[in-house]
């Protein structure tokens, strides 16, 4: 099939970008979206033009490196699917496809479609861990964890940190990402000892990074490629209020 691509081009973080139009031809419907971009890049390179920079790595939907705001939605039109797992059969011959980077103050554009997501790393560094040094662990079966709790923790833990929640949110809020980690660790008995400190620190860091606040639109949940639920945000709020009311951290 033949398509018209409208791609955000921006030379570097300090340049002003704009949408450029590129036609691509003979695209197979079995191609993945990123393979279609590979085709575009080979074309550009052969013409002596700079290929479009975009983040991607595993191309199997788990590393969270691919992003792309495709036709007005993060990771494109297919629900519960990362851009790398999106296939061209979801488009029609003759379609025009807009491709933009994530937009958020906390995710500045690095080049073209590449954004800087170190804000997420900073939030995890603020407290998204259990303080257990190597070698300190006791036998794994010593603390039974009800299957349901383990499953809920796993649901939250399946976050891939891609940032689609931020991209989808009209407030560029990172609460789904932060709450997924807060929830995972607050649900598990191992994570309970430092749960107050964790939620306070992670929320403070999230605010510092310049993300917006949640207004419960639910867009994050709808666009999340791993279908992380906003019940996690409610849980984080609970954890946050109880920490703020009862912790000794003034």
């Amino acid at each position: 099939m033949n398509l018209t691509l409208k791609v955000w081009r921006q030379k570097d973080a300090n340049s002003k970008g704009k949408i450029e139009t590129y036609p691509v031809t003979d695209i197979s419907s079995d191609m993945s979206f990123l393979e279609m971009l590979d085709v575009l890049n080979e074309q550009l390179l052969e013409k002596g033009e700079d290929p479009v920079a975009f983040d991607h790595d595993c191309r199997e939907g788990i590393c969270g490196m691919c992003s792309l705001f495709i036709n007005g939605r993060p990771h494109g039109p297919q629900n519960a699917t990362t851009t790398c797992q999106l296939h061209m059969r979801k488009f029609k011959d003759g379609d025009t496809i807009f491709i933009e980077p994530w937009r958020a103050k906390a995710f500045p554009v690095v080049k073209d479609l590449v954004v800087d997501r170190t804000a997420f790393d900073n939030i995890i560094q603020a407290g998204g861990y259990i303080s257990v040094s190597t070698g300190n662990a006791r036998d794994a079966n010593e603390t039974p964890i009800p299957k349901e709790i383990a499953d809920q923790a796993m649901d939250a833990a399946s976050c891939i940190g891609c940032g689609a929640c931020v991209a989808a949110c009209k407030n560029a809020s990172a609460m789904l990402f932060v709450s997924a980690k807060v929830s995972q660790l607050a649900l598990l008995p191992q994570g309970k000892p430092e749960k107050q400190k964790r939620v306070e620190a992670m929320v403070a860091q999230m605010d510092k990074e310049g993300f917006g606040a949640c207004t419960n639109t639910g867009a994050c949940e709808a666009e999340c490629p791993k279908e992380i639920s906003i019940t996690n945000i409610a849980r984080m709020n609970r954890e946050y209020f109880s920490a703020k009311l009862s912790s000794n951290n003034t």
Binding site: I130, V132, D139, P144, A150
Partner: peptide, 22 residues
Amino acid sequence: VNIIDQCVAQGVPFARDYGGLL
């Protein structure tokens, strides 16, 4: 065997049976 212990302590949500064990 130590690896499993370490990972569980870190909060890795391994699959469990209904009794709560791995």
